[in-house]
Design a protein around this nucleic acid. Sequence first.
DNA 1: ACAGTGACAAGTC
DNA 2: AGACTTGCCACTG
Length: 114
Amino acid sequence: MAFNLHNAQKIWKTVSKVPAGKVSSYGFVADLAGLPGRARLVGAVLQYAPQEMSVPWFRILKSNGQLAFQAGSKKAELQTGLLQEEGVVVMSNRVKMKQFGWTPGLGELMELEY
DNA sequence: ACAGTGACAAGTC
DNA sequence: AGACTTGCCACTG
């Protein structure tokens, strides 16, 4: 991993704030992490998320609710399984953001920006 | 240096 | 609802 560790940590930390049973998007996480416009970086960094940090990478989806992985792929199935375990309904590789999208409260937001 | 490629997103048509 | 375009930026060859 040759990407900026500083940014990576902010992203991992932000993703860890997403509660079980809820999902968020790459772009939203990028914004919260103080990296607006860098949704792609979030995905790039998540695949290197250290195991011991137990980052809930699977709660991050595309902004339209679609899983980022190709439908039917091994990764997509794994992600789907992990989400369903938390009660998130996934059908035809997508989730209803209306229903499961995470909308952080003030308290949660304050924990992030120093 | 440079073009292509991504776990993306928002705007236009 | 799609399809296409543009903006992102780190990584790779």
